[in-house]
Design a protein around this nucleic acid. Structure first.
Length: 347
DNA sequence: TAGGCCATCTGGTCCT
DNA sequence: AGGACCAGATGGCCTA
């Protein structure tokens, strides 16, 4: 039978084969994940009346609490649960649970992969799932803006695009990972919201923000003050204010940072960490896709003459897909990326 | 203690 | 029939 190609082959089988702990849990009142039947919340009881596995139910007239006869049940007759049926049902449920766990683990693995290619990946301070997805959307959007309109990755607009719709802690994290320097914050539109013309690229290119359809607070538009919560940040008008004073209680980010790009040294293949970065245990490393994008014309000159790919979101009407591990491996030299792209193009 | 986030179980639906 | 997918519900953990 054909099954959808999700997860690693054998995952389910292995899980099912190693379900000893689950079987134990089912009979153990201490199993916190699969509590003993009877300790289940109503909807979690593994064997529910009404299951399709019921044996034929004898014709019994149901009597309500008030003694009145309940209306005769319509639809397929229920079947009684024989012991054999219970066992089959249970086995099926256990298998399905294992599959579901495996599926969710696969989903989480994919989210982890996504986290690793975000501009603020940290092992110690993981982005939540929802924030990861929001940041990913913003990242794609911001990079496409870079490509399409010359929006500078060093502009505040770029950071604002990245932070659009993110929670304040995540905005702080992103801005911190981008190593915003006070100079990049010294502009007079500090209190303007996203989407206001004037906050844009170096050419004054107005940035138009898409409607993300996100709920408002805490996921509303980016407040410039979000960025002022950066540890050690001192803006022109905030010279004397302590970072803690404008903090809303969000703890400063102290974990090691391994961002793929930096606002102050975006696409340098190698650079020494600034004292500030060193202080924060920040290790700059060559960026990946953004480095490629910044250092290669599109399409790459080495691909000249190849048929244009179709349908890539950044390049309407084209299609361009890179294997994830290649496209986002920050350590893949650009010339290797180029050659790999060539082979993809020529396929 | 409330709220956010997460893992898990579950039953329903769709698909092969 | 069985697997994938989905959404709802629940409890645990953590933090402000």
């Amino acid at each position: 039978m054909m099954t959808k190609p999700y997860g690693k082959p054998g995952d389910v089988t292995e899980l099912v084969n190693s379900l000893g702990w689950m079987e134990e849990d089912l009979s153990s009142p201490d199993g916190d994940r699969t509590p003993e039947i009877g300790h289940y919340p109503l909807h979690r009881r593994p064997v529910e009346i009404g299951s399709e596995d019921m044996e034929e139910e004898e014709e019994e007239e149901e009597v309500g609490l008030d003694g009145e006869k309940a209306p005769k049940r319509r639809g397929p007759k229920k079947k009684k649960m024989t012991k054999a049926r219970q066992e089959r049902f249970h086995a099926r449920r256990v298998k399905a649970n294992a599959r579901e766990r495996s599926r969710m683990h696969g989903l989480n693995d994919a989210l982890d992969s996504l986290r690793r290619v975000m501009p603020c990946y940290s092992k110690t301070q993981k982005l939540s799932k929802i924030e990861t997805l929001r940041l990913a959307r913003n990242y794609i959007w911001a990079l496409s803006e870079v490509l399409e309109s010359g929006q500078s990755t060093e502009s505040l607009g770029f950071v604002e695009m990245l932070c659009k719709g993110l929670s304040q802690p995540t905005s702080n994290l992103v801005a911190g990972c981008l190593q915003l320097e006070p100079s990049s914050m010294l502009f007079n539109n500090l209190d303007e919201k996203c989407g206001v013309p004037g906050i844009g690229g170096p050419q004054g290119h107005p940035i138009t923000y898409p409607s993300p359809g996100l709920p408002s607070p805490p996921y509303g538009s980016l407040e410039a003050t979000h960025l002022l919560h950066l540890k050690g940040f001192k803006g022109a008008n905030y010279e004397n204010s302590s970072p803690n004073e404008c903090s809303s209680g969000t703890p400063p980010y102290d974990g090691p940072l391994t961002p793929p790009l930096s606002i102050s040294g975006n696409f340098a293949l190698k650079r020494e960490p600034s004292p500030h970065e060193a202080e924060r245990n920040f290790t700059p490393h060559p960026t990946h896709a953004t480095h490629y994008i910044s250092s290669h014309p599109y399409p790459p000159s080495s691909l000249a003459g190849l048929p244009a790919p179709q349908g890539h979101p950044l390049f309407p009407g084209t299609r361009f897909e890179l294997p994830l591990d290649m496209a986002f491996d920050p350590f893949t030299p650009s010339h290797i990326v180029t050659s790999q792209m060539s082979s993809i193009y020529s396929e």
